Computed example of a mutant assay.
Amino acid sequence: METYIEGFIKYLTDIKKSSKNTILSYERDLRKFFSYLESVHIQSIEKVNHTNLNSYVLYMEKENFAPSTVSRNIATLKAYFNFLFKQNRISQDPAQLLKAPKIEKKIPGILTVDQVTLLLSQPSGSSNKEIRDKAMLELLYATGIRVSELISLTVDDLNLTSGYIRVHEGGRERIIPFGTAARQALKNYLDNAREGMIASEDEKSLFTNCNGQPMSRQGFWKVLKQYAKRAGIEEDITPHTLRHSFAAHLVENGADLHAVQEMLGHSDVSTTQMYAKFSNYRIKEVYAKAHPRA
């Protein structure tokens, strides 16, 4: 069965051009599924049927997996068995009729404009670290990119003169503009801090940690938590919070959904539409609080 995983991963990488995070997620889900098959003494993928898959779904629910996790695993199984069927490695697709549990779509955590302004004002010192932190936070909010994309940026991906970055994901590329505040923070970082942080002149990573190595997700998470605490923001803030806030604030101020979709790198505009729903929710919330007869 290991061979079948390798073939599927190669398909996701070479044909589907899926992102690294998506591929890792698929692989992790499949390895958990194969462990389950071993526990019920199924040794061949050809012997897996619809009943086995339903049993696995029930097993996940019994183990108190979150509905979103169960849903993602089902999506993985459907994609995987569809791949095997099209490759003629199985005669029937046992996952074709699998149904994902209904998930209540929650409005993502969004900061207000004032909260974002307060957060971005926290790294105000003249040390290399604070200048770097200011540039990272400004760029993240200015572009709405994922943290994985932020820490993967190289100096060649940045065009300071024209005010845009080039982001690479799963073999695809998108160009995202940024404004004056991010440009000033980045210029300050490049002129006055980056040289003092990199370990070698050959270092291509745009942002490095204090040891001169490329910034990690965990490293950035600590940076964000530090400044959120300093700003007195009590909400549970994650790196994705700035991405959500970026999109919600654009839509709230009349940005075209398809333009926001392009900047975020969403493959389907329906994913981006949740920010329009958030905008409507905010209008209702303001009305309920402010109208005397609400």
Rank of each mutant, 00 (worst) to 15 (best):
I103S: 00
A247Q: 02
R146T: 08
G179K: 08
V70R: 07
I283N: 07
F246H: 04
A248I: 10
L224H: 05
I233F: 11
Y4P: 00
Q184G: 03
I9P: 02
S91R: 11
L12W: 05
S121H: 13
Y36D: 03
R89H: 05
R282T: 15
A288I: 09
S121P: 01
R174M: 09
Q273L: 10
Y36G: 02
K289G: 13
Y36Q: 08
G170P: 03
I145W: 01
L242D: 00
R132L: 05
Q87H: 06
K129W: 04
S44V: 12
S279Q: 07
P239N: 06
T272V: 04
S68H: 12
N52E: 14
R172K: 15
S35M: 07
P101K: 06
Y189Q: 10
K284N: 14
S267Q: 12
H249C: 12
H240D: 06
M1S: 08
A290C: 11
S200E: 14
V147T: 03
E149T: 09
D114A: 15
L53F: 15
C210H: 13
E63V: 11
G179C: 06
L77G: 02
A66N: 15
G219P: 03
I131G: 01
D133S: 06
T22N: 02
A79E: 00
S205N: 13
Y287V: 08
L77Q: 00
Y26W: 10
G170C: 12
K86V: 00
V260A: 02
L264H: 02
F83S: 02
Q273V: 10
E130C: 07
K222N: 14
L190K: 14
A199W: 10
K10A: 14
T272Y: 03
I237N: 00
S18L: 13
V167W: 05
L140P: 01
P123H: 07
T238V: 08
K106N: 12
N253E: 08
L77R: 00
L111D: 06
Y281P: 00
H244G: 03
Y59P: 13
K284C: 09
Y59T: 09
F178M: 04
A135F: 10
G125K: 01
H244L: 10
I283W: 00
N253G: 08
T13K: 14
Q273Y: 11
P123T: 12
Y275I: 10
S148V: 13
R31Q: 10
T241Y: 00
A135S: 12
H249S: 08
V116K: 06
Y26H: 07
E138G: 03
S71V: 03
R166F: 08
H244K: 11
M197Q: 10
K134I: 06
L119N: 03
R293Y: 11
L30Q: 04
R89D: 04
S200A: 14
G109R: 12
H41F: 06
S19W: 05
K47I: 07
S148R: 11
N128S: 14
K105D: 03
L24V: 13
T51A: 13
F85G: 01
F81N: 01
